[in-house]
Simulated assay, not measured.
Amino acid sequence: MKIPFLTKKPTVSVIRLQGVIGAGQRGGPALSDAALAPVIERAFRRKKPLAVALAINSPGGSPVQSSLIAARIRRLSEETRVPVYAFVEDMAASGGYWLACAADEIWADESSVLGSIGVISSGFGFADLISRYGIERRVHTAGQSKSMLDPFRPEKPEDIARLNELLLPIHGAFKDYVRARRCNRLDASTDLFTGDVWTGKQAVALGIADGLGHLVPRIQTLYGKDVRLIPYGQRVSPLRRLGLSADDFIEAAERRAIGSQFGLGG
């Protein structure tokens, strides 16, 4: 005989991965491996979950932090034998898609934006501006590459060539991870590694995602209506809860800047 208040309902852990991925130098919560390590650990090991769901809404960021977080998720999934499902909200682009590939299945909304499997380096050049005002840039280095791509000096072809030598291996690592995780689900007739993005429906057709669906109904379909969803996330300071943290304004600016690449800045 089952006693209702003693019968444990099945549980699924939900980890929210929202925002720009980076090391969080300003000290606030950020999508970094160090900040998320205890969160991910609890999600896999507490209450013996049947699965872990990743609620992803990220335009990307640091490739190293993306790799570290994804590797931690995969390692714990294999150690605990707990499957992982990713659910894309507005976007899983660039590093955000790297995180999504840590899941065994990727689900998205029809209007979600996925992909951007590429690497970018961007900045500004001020050489003409300071020259116009009679300002001279003086730089002295020990090491000929120490001042590579100085924004206050004219761009050099050799600097651009060196930058490409750095970007290409990072892009290669990203492509290798996507291929390893998505395997034969990817559309072999389409070049998916140009940095382009796709909507949810397009992503499913190309094998970038597995289906259209939202977190709660999909998890209930898999594990029943009685399943308990247990959220796990980083602790938020009282100031951030009240919207009074300067970090929030800076992070919002970063999200708009990166999201504007996909027409999603606002």
Rank of each mutant, 00 (worst) to 15 (best):
I56Y: 10
A53C: 15
I135P: 02
Y133F: 08
L149P: 05
T141D: 06
G123T: 04
E158F: 10
E158L: 10
I130E: 03
P59H: 14
S112R: 05
A188W: 01
L186G: 04
G61I: 08
S112V: 03
R138D: 04
A102R: 01
L129W: 09
S58I: 13
F152N: 03
M148V: 03
G143S: 05
P83S: 08
S67D: 13
I69S: 03
S111Y: 11
S111E: 11
R132I: 09
V52Y: 03
I56M: 13
D176K: 15
N164V: 14
A173I: 12
A180T: 14
M148N: 09
Q144L: 14
R153G: 06
I69E: 03
G134F: 05
N164F: 10
I69M: 04
A71Y: 07
H171M: 07
Y133H: 06
L99A: 10
G96W: 06
E165H: 09
E165F: 00
F174V: 13
W107E: 12
S121V: 03
S189L: 04
R153M: 05
C183Y: 00
L114Q: 03
I56A: 12
L149R: 01
A55T: 13
A70H: 10
V64I: 11
R182F: 02
V64R: 10
G95Q: 06
A180E: 15
L129S: 12
S116I: 00
G143T: 06
K156F: 09
L168G: 01
F87H: 07
A180D: 14
G60N: 07
V64A: 10
G118W: 03
A102F: 07
Y133I: 08
G123V: 06
Q144V: 11
S121T: 04
V52I: 14
N57I: 12
R75S: 15
S145M: 15
A86I: 07
I117R: 12
A102Y: 01
Y85E: 02
I56D: 12
R137D: 00
I135G: 05
A173P: 01
W98H: 14
V178C: 10
Y133P: 02
D128N: 14
S122Y: 02
P154T: 04
P157T: 08
A71N: 14
R72D: 11
